[in-house]
């Protein structure tokens, strides 16, 4: 099957390949897979206090279209607010990369990865806020952890 020029371009020069510290509270990590083909994709975002995505990295093990989809997604994510990032649709990726019907699932995977990275970031923030609102004494926390 022939890949479009844009897919080949992203495949040969993937943008933003790499890893962000998943334990950093400002980092959201999305890890998704396509059971139909066995592709795995990790997409991470770093968000500043104003809710703007300042950095995005990905690592994808899969076909050229999956790599290109996640590479493109990280490019698009940088500089966007979380709200804007949420509006990215797989169809936009399909259009930009000229993905054929059999490769649409790769763009779906990238959209899922974005959503799951945002969800991870938000749940981390919520957990931190909850802790901040109700400070737990160290010994109580230890007692809970030991349960």
């Amino acid at each position: 099957m022939a890949y479009s020029d844009k897919v080949v371009e992203h495949y040969e020069n993937p943008r933003n390949v790499g890893t962000l510290d998943k334990n950093d509270p400002a980092v959201g990590t999305g890890l998704v897979g396509a059971p139909a083909c066995g592709d795995v994709m990790r997409l991470q975002i770093k968000v500043d206090d104003g809710g703007v995505i300042t950095d995005a990295k990905f690592k994808t093990f899969g076909c050229g279209s999956a790599i290109a989809s996640s590479s493109l997604a990280t490019e698009w994510l940088k500089g966007k607010t979380l709200g804007e990032a949420e509006t990215i649709k797989n169809t936009q990726i399909v259009e930009e990369l000229n993905l054929p019907p059999v490769k649409i699932h790769c763009s779906v995977l990238a959209e899922d990865a974005i959503k799951s990275a945002i969800a991870d970031f938000r749940s981390k923030q919520a957990a931190r806020r909850a802790l901040g609102a109700e400070p737990v004494a160290a010994d109580t926390a230890a007692a809970h952890a030991g349960k």
Partner: peptide, 20 residues
Amino acid sequence: ERAEPKASPALLMEMMELQE
């Protein structure tokens, strides 16, 4: 492919680590 059940996060994590 859209209807396939999603893999458990643990499996995905493991596959990612194995690939790395």
